[in-house]
Amino acid sequence: MFEARLVNSSTFRKVLDAIKDLLNEASFDCSENGIQLQAMDSSHVSLVSLNLKSDGFDKFRCDRNLTMGMNLTSLGKVFKCSGADDTVTMKAQDYADTVTFMFESKKQDKISDYEMKLMNLDQEHLGIPDTEFSCIIKMPSIEFARIIRDLSQFGESIVISCTKEGVKFSAQGDIGTGNVKLAQTHNFDKEEESVTIDLQEPVALTFACQYLNSFTKATPLSNQVKLSMCENVPLVVEYQIPELGHLRFYLAPKIEE
C-alpha cells in the first residue's frame, strides 16, 4: 500500500509545470524514503531529477517499493481539477495498475477523486558521479529566469562564465550580442535576494537556451536557484522545494568542434 498526503497540493502542481516541457512521461519511484524521479528528455540532452522526502509529506506510507509510470499530460489534467488550496492524497495498492488522487478543499466541504491508469515505462537510469564543482552560483530564481528569457532573444546559446568578480551571461546572434553581469551581493536581511559565488576556479560553458528556458518553469518553487558548473561536466540547476526536497536539472554543455 502506498499513500502520500500533501496539504499544499499546489507544490506538486508546480513540480509538474516545471517538468512537463521536458518529459512526456516519467516513472515515480516510491519507497519509504519518499518519491524520486529521474528521467532524460527524448534527445538525452537534459535530465530531470526530483527528490521528495517522505518526512516532507503530511502523511507518508509505502509498504513496498513501487514504480509508477505516468503520462505527465494526463497527470496535468488531474491536477488541473484541483483547487489552489486543496490537500492531495495519492494512493496506490501494491502491484496496482492505477493510482488515485483525492483532493480535499480547506474547509473539507468538497472532496473529489480521480483514478489514473499507470504505464509500464522502459526506465533508463543514469549513474551521476559526485562532482567537485569549480563554481557554485546562488541567485534569485526570478533574476535567473529573466536573464535567460532576455538573452534567448539574441541567440540559441548562452555562455555562462564565472570568475571571482562575478558571473556573466552572454548570447550572440544575427541581431547582435547581449551580456548580463552579476556581482556578488550579500543581503543579510533578504537572503533570497543575494547573489553568492563559491569559486574554486574560473569556468565558462555554453548551453542551449531552449533547455535553460524550460528549467526556469520551476521558478515558482523556490526564491533561489543554484547553478553548479565545472569544465566539461553537465550544468546542474537546482531548485530547493521548501521542507519537501529538491528539483534538479542537468544539462549537457555545447562543445566547440
Partner: peptide
C-alpha cells in the same frame, strides 16, 4: 559553432 553534447557521453547508464 558549438555542438550539443548528450548526457550519456558524461554519465554512465545504470
Amino acid at each position: 559553432a558549438a555542438n550539443q553534447s548528450t548526457l550519456t557521453s558524461f554519465f554512465k547508464r545504470k
